[in-house]
Design a binder for these strands. Structure first.
Lengths: 239, 239
DNA sequence: AGAATTAACTTGTAAATACAAGTAGGGTCA
DNA sequence: TGACCCTACTTGTATTTACAAGTTAATTCT
């Protein structure tokens, strides 16, 4: 179902270099080929290359220094929770296990714990709903609920979410990119359900994040709620 | 002390339009003059104008729509706490009162509650330290501690922080722009001091943010800690 | 040998130009 | 009147060219 649309050149270049960095072709501290070299490699011109690099800079994959070059910073950590990627990339994937509490299913929207109003189309189509628990070093750390409109996501409910980030699946399988969003953060006390899932006592402070994310597909929004036991793993983010 | 350096054109244009939006010359929903019109006004070419607009898009001041134009979104709200601006712009300035708990003073670094290691230079020069309490509708909401190295910030300790955001002062008076940073978020229980300042009971959950911000001045970092009573005012952010 | 200069790189800024793609409104035709 | 099309506008992408400014390393001079 990979939709190989006609991406603009600068995005193609961006994707290639981005993949090289996340695949370890370029390591942290390495210096990328110069812009002129990249022009030659990708058969294009500097403005195009620079536009691709701009994006990599913005997302934290590289830093540039005039007169020197583009320095690889590695896969950005913790951009995640506070900015664009999913929880998976926020804490690094090393010791992270994802347990599916509620497998993706199509159901009616549960508007009770949704901080945002729904659009008509969204309500009509119903929603894909799932709950996940993220476990770091045998300790549950995140408990998250995700809801998204059931629009043009064929076969989604049969996909395996366990080891892949939701965002990756959306990007590679459905050509949906998360372009931004808004969120509300608050500290709360764990209720019964949270106490159970996150294995904490009554009165334990929990970080609660309620987010609405917009995507490259117009009118397609993701809604998620994250409950985080930040006692051992503070949420780290760059901006 | 305004350092009127030679800004590149696209930054000049960016600053002008940005100011127009925050001053209300352009209101939310307005459509900016077309890129070609802006070219004529600012006597430059589209790539330059587009670079300025790119930045405004990225910061959330405007949105662009192909075939239509650049739509003004207003001053971005809540980019603040979670991204670039200071606390002041995170919640809107309407009902926000800032109370200075500890006036800016030069002192030794207090490394005890600092999550980041200090550089040698920073430690040598000492730090400018202050504490502020942010009050919304008569309820204290934020309590924040800011530390920054005492390097080339003449007259800073005599400046009035009450109604201006720290970031604005740094940008306009010292030409220092916050370019990014990192932060750790966690939910904690209010200790004695926080209970007192934020007027909450024992066992009340508090959102704690520990941030290190980097600036356009190389090697100049800001350190701040924010304690937030998120009960009534959830922290809102866009990304 | 050591210090200063220079040359050859790097990225940063800027202009001029061209065409593609999306939007909106006016005009034409049925 | 209504549906359609076309045109004029918008932003999106891309090339080409030029010079400025910062970095690095080799070269030259003392």
């Amino acid at each position: 179902m990979r939709l190989s649309k006609n991406l603009p050149q600068y995005k193609v270049v961006y994707e290639i270099i981005r993949k090289h960095i996340s695949d370890g072709v370029y390591l942290k501290g390495d210096i990328l080929p110069s812009e002129n070299e990249l022009c030659a490699v990708h058969q294009t011109t500097r403005p195009t290359i620079r536009k691709a690099l701009d994006r990599l800079v913005h997302e934290g994959y590289i830093k540039k220094k005039q007169g020197k070059g583009s320095i690889v910073m590695g896969v950005p950590q913790g951009v995640g929770i506070l900015s664009l990627s999913g929880t998976t990339s926020a804490v690094g994937q090393e010791n992270l296990i994802t347990e599916i509490i509620v497998k993706p299913e199509i159901r009616q929207w549960d508007t009770s714990n949704l901080a945002y109003p729904l659009l008509n189309d969204e309500e009509e189509f119903g929603c894909i709903y799932f709950e996940r628990l993220r476990i770091m070093n045998k300790q549950p750390v995140f408990y998250d609920i995700t809801m998204m409109p059931n629009i043009n996501l064929r076969r989604f409910i049969s996909r395996n979410l366990e080891n892949k980030s939701l965002f990756n699946i959306l990007r590679t399988m459905y050509d949906i990119e998360v372009t931004g969003g808004e969120q509300r953060l608050m500290a709360i006390l764990a209720d019964k359900k949270i106490q159970e899932y996150l294995n904490v006592k009554e009165g334990h402070p929990i970080l609660h994040i309620n987010r609405k994310m917009e995507t490259s597909r117009e009118g397609f929004f993701l809604y998620s709620q994250v409950y985080c036991n930040s006692e051992k793993y503070a949420i780290f983010g760059t901006f």
